[in-house]
Nucleic acid binder design. Structure first.
Lengths: 117, 117
DNA sequence: TCAGTAGTTCAATGACCACTGAACTAGTGG
DNA sequence: CCACTAGTTCAGTGGTCATTGAACTACTGA
């Protein structure tokens, strides 16, 4: 398998990183990786109920946003947050996201009235 | 004109806020508002080259993500970052975004010769 | 009343996104 | 060689997004 491309973080804009983080499933994945360090992909999305192909999609988005790095060992893919690089490029951002990704931050409590338009 | 709806920040998820911030134009708007405090909408998007309707769209996204508050005085709409509320709800996040929204964060930079990695 | 200003709403367009299931690739171990 | 496991790629679907231009609302000042 071809080594997937990992962008130079210097080339990644803040907006792109935020876009990568702006999905509840991906936030959950990031949080898990932050807690576990390098880990098998299956571990990251096991409790998320994502299908294989959907998980693969989200991993790709995160990789292309510069948020994680993937490596292969044997039969399995491993994923690692590019935590140090992110902290160097966007100081305080990852810390804030991790600190605020707890309960109540990824899921809304109430659908909201959506009373307009 | 009907008062627009401003969501309770307690109901807004981190993913939604990140989504609101994940566009270069909106990041720019947020940065401008952070620097200027309450200000006329026209000031916020004047140097962005956004059309009126497009700017109105982005203001609505930011409002619905809980990022800003809009008020009307006379003929003009004013926009204010909900900075204190955001800092209370997602500590460190707004600070990190503002601090990293400078040059090179919203727009891809030139590759740069001192290539690393 | 009338023109001008400020901004919203609407319909439409093209792009992209999340998600699915099926087909595919690649490594592991019998 | 064969099945098994782990994950990717592909085509397609429905939904949302950014953007535009035109029509509309609402306030202001002459």
């Amino acid at each position: 398998m071809l080594e997937p491309h990992h962008p130079d973080l210097g080339q990644v804009s803040l907006a792109e990183v935020l876009r990568g983080l702006s999905d509840p499933a991906r936030l959950h994945m990031v949080k898990t990786m932050y807690a576990l360090g390098e880990c098998e992909c299956s571990l990251v999305y096991a409790d998320l109920g994502l299908s294989k192909s959907n998980a693969s999609h989200h991993f790709r988005v995160l990789r292309e946003s510069g948020i994680l790095r993937r490596t292969q060992r044997g039969n399995q893919q491993y994923a690692t947050l590019r935590a140090d690089e992110l902290k160097a490029r966007f100081p305080g951002l990852l810390e804030a996201v991790i600190a605020n990704s707890g309960a109540g931050s990824g899921v809304r409590a109430d659908p909201g009235p959506s009373g307009e338009r």
